[in-house]
Write a protein that binds this DNA or RNA. Structure first.
Lengths: 170, 170
DNA sequence: TTAAAGTTTCAATTAATTATGAAAATTATC
DNA sequence: GATAATTTTCATAATTAATTGAAACTTTAA
């Protein structure tokens, strides 16, 4: 396989993966391009390589910048903006986890807290079951929350070494 | 708060969470209803509680059944189908992980394998960088794969006990 | 200061996804 | 085996999400 084809396949697959996880396809594809490129890319480069409009490119580059996965760089003697993507996949994963935790997990934890105390003190089976389910979900969500917090602090090698060892015996 | 409002909020939040992770909102809401209900629910019940059409209800119940999160039950003397949802949140999480691993992670791993060997033996910086990135992503994906495999085998308490202990010192 | 280059915005359009509902198919009951 | 109840299918409609492209805005440098 040629480099150019391999790149295309990677970009395409990254876009598809993003879509399946609620991330705009174009955003994921731009991210893929940025990961694969040694050199900073301009908006023009991205428009060309993905055959997309200027507005689309601009908006998704901004979104990636907001996520902290891409940053602007200045090229000497060049007027236009160039961008580079974070290349460390562990950092990328952590960053995505951090953002999604804040946006999605934290609100769910708040909601679960607020609904677990009902006025209804009837202790009916229905109420008891509801409270048990909410509590179970809350416990799992809290554990996931702590796991993510742990990941933020951990080093990649340390983390995988420890985690994978856990399962080695089984 | 009253039970009925708390349920509504939970169902609504579960739907929103699903949407953000590439799962049809209605499918997630039906799943929420099923989790919260002690009793089996019929298609009619679901149509009524979520104000959705029969076709929509039917399709999403089937999808949940395919995911192994809901099963059909027979009610004595009743002609229509009733459904119950899995109530064990750990099992639910494992099942979702299993399905998404198969559908999404495994294909990505295959792709990464197939693109890492290029005809281009030029050892240009460009080729080297590409191969390094693909390799890094592949390593991370493989570790995630193993983590999920481990989760399948582990018991909930054992798993969280071990994992959370890992981070206790830090 | 101005005009050319580059960037951003956003209303309008297009594309993709979901939902509807009625007809067809299936299943149970008499 | 006719019919009534229920489920499934799927073409079409509705909704939601993504994209375009041109105008407005900003920056640079002559």
């Amino acid at each position: 396989m040629q480099l150019i084809d391999a790149k295309k396949q990677f970009v395409q697959a990254w876009g598809a993966l993003g879509s399946q996880w609620g991330i705009n396809k174009t955003m994921a594809q731009i991210h893929a391009l940025m990961m694969l490129s040694n050199e900073p890319l301009s908006t023009e480069d991205i428009m060309e390589q993905l055959s997309i409009s200027r507005g689309n490119a601009n908006m998704n580059i901004r979104e990636l910048t907001d996520w902290g996965l891409v940053s602007k760089v200045f090229k000497a003697g060049e007027r236009r903006d160039y961008f580079v993507g974070e290349k460390d996949v562990w950092k990328i994963a952590k960053q995505v986890a951090k953002i999604r935790k804040t946006r999605e997990l934290d609100p769910i934890l708040n909601l679960l807290n607020s609904i677990k105390n009902l006025d209804d003190s009837s202790k009916s089976e229905e109420v008891k079951h509801f409270q048990k389910m909410v509590d179970d979900v809350h416990k799992l969500a809290t554990n996931v929350d702590r796991l993510i917090e742990g990941i933020f602090k951990a080093e990649q090698n340390w983390f995988w070494d420890k985690v994978l060892k856990l399962f080695a015996k089984h």
